[in-house]
Design a protein around this nucleic acid. Structure first.
Lengths: 148, 148
DNA sequence: TCCTTTTGTTAACTTCGGCTAACATTATAT
DNA sequence: ATATAATGTTAGCCGAAGTTAACAAAAGGA
């Protein structure tokens, strides 16, 4: 298990690559408001954990493991964000900030139950829905905005 | 603002004092599964932050500030715990573990909204309830266990 | 009382995650 | 093609939070 700090770096790398294609140490440092040496340490650490491929002065590429973990981190973020925004009613910006923090500390079980709960609430308590975040999306219902 | 680690020490001191009256460094170390030197560091740090009174080899007493902060930390814990247990449906032990972690990262605003939400759900959507965690408890309704 | 056990403190070390300063490398523009 | 700018790396430092080992103080029992 890597640290929460490294998870943040991995997530940022994944997101930036989706957005921009090739990314550099500087891009990550800018995005995360940290220094380049910090990024350098982090990517070397991620490399040791087989989450990215990287050679000195080279390009940053996610490994299969890295890709999967990044996706999982983002998925957790999405679930928590949706919950805070549409269930609890936080403003978008607050929901994002809180989701960033909470996603780092909750277990997979909690994430899953939170997803199911949110899903049910947003679908007006369709309790028969078999939505499971670790499988594919439920095909019987779609998330709808919260109906007051 | 003190660190999350120090908050944990403060909370433990508060709880142990409630339970046992006088407490010692060893008690805290046992409760928190850490070494006595760690506790020693922590209490010196808490003292510098005017949250406890302590003299070398003396007794540990919470200051007014310390008492207030400890209460607030516990209140947040209670809210998150209740939410995870009765709203999300985590088992007691999981709910406790998750609440310990989540309480450290969420803002006051989120805590408040989470409390209100949980309160409403447990009271079967009594939307007129004015429960506010920063004020006194709502006098119009009492928390009840979740009715499926 | 005094010896032993328990408790508390200090010192020195570790890891993590950040930083700056200095330097190395790569890219760009004239 | 080369000077300059941008980018990346290394080295060394810092603070937080933990550790162990060694020592000091307090408490308790014979």
């Amino acid at each position: 298990m890597i640290s929460k700090a490294l998870e943040e770096y991995l997530k940022t790398i994944y997101v930036l690559k989706k957005q921009n294609g090739n990314i550099r140490v500087t891009d990550i440092a800018n995005k995360m408001n940290c220094s380049k040496p910090s990024v350098n340490k982090a990517i070397n650490n991620l490399k040791e954990n087989n989450l990215i491929n990287y050679e000195t002065y080279g390009t940053i590429e996610l490994t299969e493991n890295g890709e999967q973990l990044a996706k999982k981190i983002l998925e957790t973020y999405d679930i928590v964000y949706l919950f805070f925004k549409d269930v609890i009613g936080l403003k978008e910006e607050s929901a994002k900030q809180e989701a960033e923090k909470v996603k780092l500390v909750i277990t997979d079980e909690t994430t899953n139950k939170l997803a199911k709960y949110t899903h049910k609430v947003l679908d007006l308590y369709d309790l028969d829905c078999n939505y499971d975040v670790n499988q594919e999306r439920c095909r019987n219902c779609k998330r709808r905005t919260l109906k007051k």
